[in-house]
Write a protein that binds this DNA or RNA. Structure first.
Lengths: 256, 256
DNA sequence: AAGTGGTCTAGACCACGTT
DNA sequence: ACGTGGTCTAGACCACTTT
């Protein structure tokens, strides 16, 4: 085997416009890996094939597979463990949990949250929900309201909206019977992995119903967090509007 | 030259405890590069030597230099430009500006902010400032208050605290004569590059003086952002407490 | 044409975990 | 001992920018 280092050009010319998009081999491998993940070939928590096996499967060198896997590991989609293998990230591992829950106490160590479901019903998407989930207005949506407490202090009210088509058997009973992070339930019961999220943060006066759910007597300022979560391929699968009490807790962030 | 792939072990045993910390070559190179950046060998905006030159200088292969540079580029400390070279990141480039200013308008495209200095004086560090900046209580600190406006709407009040020892000639006049991002001024006038920051976010009722500075009539909820900024080597060099009006703007964030 | 970073390969060896 | 990911090297070629 002599030189075979030429990347296979990914996309054909679309006819009209400029040059064909050049796509490096490792990007193509990366896309293939994501496709397999999306198809459920490897489930969260499981290991994917070794680099050598993947190299053989895709007919590229181990180094090229490595670069593809490196990027997916950098996006926290895969998890490398030296000596053991490469694993599909899961929200059931404690290590990953605080990636999406950014509340930390002003003092002391973080504690696990207790969740209480206040409501779970099927509604039709209004314009805002439809836009966020990229579905049509009027399509079915599961609407959940829950309270998160730390050390028995109610701290967060989340309003969660999920595409009905993807969450068929989701009921209040199922939610109540489950303890652990919601995203873990979504993985194990509905085969939906949350991979990334965008958030918009604002300070607002507590709306009446939220204040009530939190046991607040006045409309104190709350941190309003509007989140859209995405699964593989940047497909939005959750809209979540949270209201956080930020007296004893704060939202932590890092700028790089 | 045969095999010379053995990494030079970085640290000697400290005597007491367990095995010597293994440090890969590229990490050592990375540390050397940061050291040079910190020493001002290459200034923000300038290019660093080519990979081939660096490989010769450090007596390693180009691939090892590449991995070190890759990581620094991933941290936004360096900036790679194909065909041109590798450059030291600078806050004067528009591309980098929105990395540290996370306010985006509810509608429309982001606009540049106008800054107005309300105050600039030298004070002594109280306990909170001293802890954040890792200096002693009572040491000199530059305290700045400014307002940021978008389209002439006052939106942010920042209280900024800087170690006096590092910002000798910083005066209100200097700040007023300057237009552009503060971090750009810090780079060009004081040789201090902001590389990373940690933030704590809370919703608070507007304090009186802040409300006054923003032209608010009532104590509406504000987003309070407490930021500690770091230069090379994780040395804290700025404490900044911002209060944001989040009616027309929001704080954007991404979770990965 | 020359120089830069970007991709790809092949092979050696190291560190870690399991068998 | 073996298999996994992690590091390091050397060399070829590609893509982009400047001379």
């Amino acid at each position: 085997m002599s030189d075979s280092a030429q990347p296979r050009t990914a996309s054909a010319d679309s006819g009209t416009s400029t040059a064909a998009a050049f796509s490096p081999l490792y990007q193509q491998i990366k896309a293939l890996l994501v496709k397999s993940l999306d198809a459920g070939e490897w489930k969260p928590g499981e290991s994917i094939p070794s680099e050598i096996e993947l190299a053989a499967r895709f007919q590229v060198s181990q180094g090229t597979v490595r670069k593809a896997v490196d990027e997916l590991a950098g996006q926290n989609i895969l998890l490398r463990r030296q000596g053991k293998g490469t694993f599909v990230a899961t929200h059931l591992e404690p290590r990953v949990r605080f990636r999406f829950l950014r509340l930390a106490p002003n003092e002391g160590a973080p504690e696990p949250a207790q969740s209480k479901i206040l409501d779970c019903r099927r509604i039709r998407a209004n314009a805002e929900i439809a836009r966020a989930l990229e579905i049509k207005s009027g399509e079915p949506v599961v609407a959940i309201r829950r309270v998160l407490s730390f050390s028995n202090v109610p701290t967060v009210v989340d309003d969660i909206y999920l595409p009905g088509a993807l969450f068929k058997g989701l009921t209040a009973d199922l939610l109540n019977d489950y303890s652990g992070p919601l995203y873990g339930l979504f993985e194990s019961e509905f085969d939906i992995s949350m991979v990334r999220a965008d958030e918009q943060l604002r300070a607002v006066a507590a709306p009446d119903d939220i204040a009530l759910a939190l046991g607040l007597t006045a409309a104190i300022p709350l941190l309003c967090v509007e989140r859209i979560s995405f699964t593989y391929g940047n497909r939005p699968v959750e809209l979540r509007i949270g209201h956080y009490v930020t007296n004893e807790y704060y939202y932590r962030n890092s700028l790089n």
